[in-house]
Design a protein around this nucleic acid. Sequence first.
DNA 1: CCGCTTCTGAACACGATGTTCAGCATGATA
DNA 2: TATCATGCTGAACATCGTGTTCAGAAGCGG
Lengths: 194, 194
Amino acid sequence: MKIERTDTGMIDRRVARTRALLQDALITLVPERGYAPITVEDICEKANVGRSTFYTHYAGKEELRSATIDEHLRLLGNRQPSSPLETSDRLFEFSRPMFEHAHALRFLHRALLASSGDTIHDKFRERIRRAVRSELIGRRIDEAGGSLEVAVQFISGAFLAVLAWWIAADTGLSPAQVDALFQQMATRAGGREF
Amino acid sequence: MKIERTDTGMIDRRVARTRALLQDALITLVPERGYAPITVEDICEKANVGRSTFYTHYAGKEELRSATIDEHLRLLGNRQPSSPLETSDRLFEFSRPMFEHAHALRFLHRALLASSGDTIHDKFRERIRRAVRSELIGRRIDEAGGSLEVAVQFISGAFLAVLAWWIAADTGLSPAQVDALFQQMATRAGGREF
DNA sequence: CCGCTTCTGAACACGATGTTCAGCATGATA
DNA sequence: TATCATGCTGAACATCGTGTTCAGAAGCGG
């Protein structure tokens, strides 16, 4: 069976209801056990929706998750670019609204963006974080308000992104070259207290 | 059945052979299809190892991957800390050896570290990357040797790491505060050409 | 060469996926 | 309100991957 739209383009209430129930169920379930171990049946049970019904809406767990995210990201996308005239020359305008939005929907983000459940990645990341942390401690005298941890996350995140990109993309850059570029940015990032 | 060691602590050749075959099979398979869709049976077939044998060595796919990584990371770990006396005050000493190592074993890294196959994360990351890229273009005049892309990866990686940490850890920091810290580091990272 | 360990492949139980369908319930429309 | 098209249901089914078990074959170490 397949879900169509009415001639007028309206969405049947039953369809809207079912989809909302399923998405809510997913969002409720993920924080409890994590995403990976959840089954379609779990979701249906929590949502009080027949399993066969699930498949008339989504091809599987992944598609439900994807649709859920998309629907919420669309809301974020529909913001006016913070007054188009006011072209401040502050860099990285995007960050503030992102932080705001993530904070407002932090439960959703926790449920759907956090925990890829990827053991390997996490192991590797933790390794890097430790290295960065130990290099930062002792260089910075004062660390009020957990800004050390922000710096650790900042630097290690940057490093891993550059590393992953460099390995995957097979640019012509030699290890020494990427490292030089990374070093330059990383060192500057900390400012004078480094 | 369970694999033990001989009294002398030696590893039976058959055991070594089997494990090597399985690890190699995994490394061969991942670049072809990605990690997620690979089944234990696939691995066994590629490795020419009985499926029941697989389970006498590893509890599942994940454990095999974990063991494979660990075994290779151990090789990296056994490096002397680049002459302990030479305590250069160059920051982030860790990065250079990492880049070197990743380059040497780049096929392994591509196979096991790249592509978590996580659709959602990737979508989100790409969104950020685009935002960063568009903010950087136009500000930087000269972009020789793909250093723009390095900057994009650097900044977006840093942003996502900070965001993920902040959402997950529930520190007391307000959106404005995290953003301020992020902005400070990000702006500095680019140096004067920003 | 002997004895012990590992490998093998087939069989089994299990759980989750994804599909199908006949019948029921509900929303849209007039 | 009546009608009818559409969505929901639940049970049944086929399929697939997982993880276990075991008896016999093969290979290793001593």
